[in-house]
């Protein structure tokens, strides 16, 4: 299948490993991945911060860039949620009915990674190997906006060598919330503190999720504590195999040194 990668601005800029892993994983499963180069940002930050009018050109760009593709995937529930639940609304409020219907059409073909794997490609065992104790944080937009349910957990359970431990109070927000973490930094930090407490209580050495944004938040907190627990995007776990493990570990040593 030919799949267009909606990389998301955050993964593109700060977390390319999650995006590269998405490419490697889909190619390993026998699919063709294309990267439409005109893409930038879905505009979620603008919409959620109260700048809908400024998001209109970004919505228009996103719809134009991705309209030619039948299947679109993003390694982010949050950005897929924005495409699915905000783009048409932003266009309609701006009075652009044609854009709204184009955005709806694109949204209907856009999937978060675990949705694509389980629902569209019909796989739960992607042949991955990741010999670590892992806990999974269901991000709010995966859990409540996209309703991905147990898809990520089913994918993780099929990963060889992976010891999946349940995260207490998993459904609670980590406190990121985009500009919320800046505008209400104190409250955000209080929420993060509880999330970290729960992550640490699992004894996991890796905390994973389907959103780099929440992982940046949780990982930033865990790093500040020097807790030794890493955050790794779901795509990176699913892309890991026994064969490239050695390479992967070496690369990681370089990054972390």
């Amino acid at each position: 299948m030919r799949i267009a990668l909606f990389v998301t601005c955050l993964a593109d800029t700060l977390f390319p490993e999650a995006a590269k892993a998405t490419v490697r994983l889909l190619e390993r499963l026998g699919h063709e991945v294309v990267f439409p180069p005109g893409q930038t940002c879905c505009g979620q930050m603008h919409v959620n911060t109260g700048y809908q009018a400024q998001a209109v050109p970004l919505v228009r760009r996103h719809a134009r860039v991705f309209d030619p593709y039948d299947v679109i995937v993003a390694p982010s529930a949050s950005c897929v949620g924005s495409v699915r639940h905000q783009h048409a609304m932003v266009a309609r409020r701006a009075g652009d009915v044609r854009l709204a219907s184009r955005a709806e059409s694109v949204a209907g073909r856009t999937y978060e990674l675990s949705e694509l794997l389980v629902d569209v490609l019909g796989v739960t065992d992607v042949g991955a190997y990741f010999p670590h104790r892992v806990t999974y944080h269901p991000t709010c937009h995966a859990l409540r906006m996209l309703r991905v349910g147990d898809r990520p957990v089913r994918l993780l359970r099929a990963v060889r060598g992976l010891d999946l431990v349940e995260l207490p109070a998993a459904e609670q927000c980590c406190g990121f919330g985009g500009t919320f973490a800046v505008k209400n930094a104190d409250t955000s930090t209080a929420m993060l503190a509880d999330k970290m407490r729960h992550v640490l209580s699992t004894g996991a050495d890796v905390c994973t999720a389907g959103d780099s944004s929440c992982l940046m938040h949780i990982g930033g907190g865990l790093s500040r504590l020097r807790s030794g627990v890493r955050t790794v995007h779901l795509a990176q776990i699913l892309a890991s195999t026994e064969r490239d493990r050695a390479v992967h570990e070496r690369a990681e040593l370089v990054v972390r040194s």
Binding site: A11, F15, G220, R224
Partner: peptide
């Protein structure tokens, strides 16, 4: 406010689109 309680990630050596 954000960096008061969290570390920023290391910026990667190349962006995804460069890769």
């Amino acid at each position: 406010g954000w960096t008061a309680g969290r570390d920023l990630p290391d910026p990667p050596t190349q962006t995804f689109r460069q890769w």
